[in-house]
Design a protein around this nucleic acid. Structure first.
Lengths: 213, 213
DNA sequence: AACACTACTTACAGGACTGTCAACAAGCGC
DNA sequence: GCGCTTGTTGACAGTCCTGTAAGTAGTGTT
């Protein structure tokens, strides 16, 4: 028998909500497969709308991707700044600061996302000074805590921060791959172990002592 | 006046040469923009043939990419193994070994290429033990040279090797981006400086002394 | 209730890309 | 020369994708 043509009621969001839900979907797909593989129809299906609805909110594909990237980069930035801001000058150690940097980069898949962005050459052309800012914060902490006789140079701190960032990215991107091909069984535990090991190493490098007990 | 239809002579390579030239072009494009953005027609244009010629040699797009990736991964492998093999047990120090690891990863854009591969989830499913092998080599060197009293564990060496790999990848992918946004003027020099700094740091970590003079 | 606004839909046009096919031509053995 | 093999080509078919146009349906305002 012929089914009655009873269409399901059409869902209607306000523009802001729609944009947010769409960007969420875009971000997830970007993280998974990168910008070049993004299909508007897929995103639309994720959200549960037709593909012209997506175009209605963002104009075209390029703008859609740009919007998602901008939001992600801003998110990472506040994630980082927020994490650092929590570091009370005298309550927290550099060890905490390092942990927070690593956390911020990996949370919400920011590292993987940023890897896609940079590889694709889509990073916002903002000549931002975020890294310089982070470095400055770490350096101040370091100078307070250090046991090194010639006071550490900012250049040295910069390299250390760079190393932390690289390691975080490396783990986020190659971590599973490398561990799998190393025959490690408990990947999650191993990730944590590496992180602690790195934090200790960097801490020793920064303030010159690895066991303060 | 109507131009005479004088076709340029058709160039004809043997299959092996054609495949190699095509794979060269694919590799370059892969390194630049990744697998998802690869267009057969572009590759064909690079080589100077029509796009069906490319398909003739590789069957389809997927096989083409697979072939390029396989060749690249094999190349990286021999690059690495070769570099390590040069390390005479008693002539070279861990410092040299570290340098060689970094070199091998960055040479020919292997790091960037591998980043695309891993991000795209296209790594060959070979349960290879390359990393374990590298780790073993480094560990042996380390045990010979170390000044640490409790002999270093293999686990610790493994983490160190991991860190080197991560840093190499990080620099290859994010290096320019990060340095640019740090306001560094001479990028090339800074890259070198970081590498030396990292080699020293890791060396100290591995054999327990940073200034053997 | 009528009206405006706009999120959303279906249908379609245009283009880009992959893969196929039949024919062409360059080298090689005879 | 003649024919065979095979690298190579132009033309084409089918599909996928982006973007447009016109109309539909929620939601709020008066």
């Amino acid at each position: 028998m012929a089914a009655r043509k009873s269409k399901p009621p059409r869902q209607r969001r306000d523009a802001e909500t729609a944009r947010r839900e769409i960007l969420d979907a875009v971000e997830a797909r970007l993280r998974q497969s990168g910008p070049a593989a993004l299909r508007i129809a897929d995103v639309a299906a994720d959200v549960g709308v037709s593909h012209p609805a997506v175009l209605h909110h963002f104009g075209n594909r390029e703008e859609l991707i740009r919007a998602a990237i901008t939001r992600a980069v801003d998110g990472l930035q506040s994630q980082l700044v927020e994490g650092m801001a929590q570091a009370k000058p005298d309550a927290d150690s550099t060890l905490d600061v390092i942990g927070r940097l690593l956390d911020g980069l990996e949370r919400k898949g920011y590292a993987r996302m940023l890897a896609w962005i940079v590889l694709s050459g889509l990073e916002p052309e903002t000549p931002d000074s975020r890294i310089a800012f982070m470095t400055q914060l770490v350096h101040e902490k370091r100078c307070q805590e250090t046991a090194l006789d010639p006071p550490p140079t900012l250049q040295d701190t910069r390299k250390t921060v760079l190393l932390i960032a690289y390691a975080a990215f490396g783990q986020a991107i190659f971590g599973d791959f490398v561990l799998r091909s190393s025959g490690v069984s408990d990947v999650k535990t191993e990730r944590e172990a590496f992180r602690r090991w790195l934090a200790d190493l960097v801490h020793a490098q920064l303030v010159g002592s690895t066991d303060p007990t």
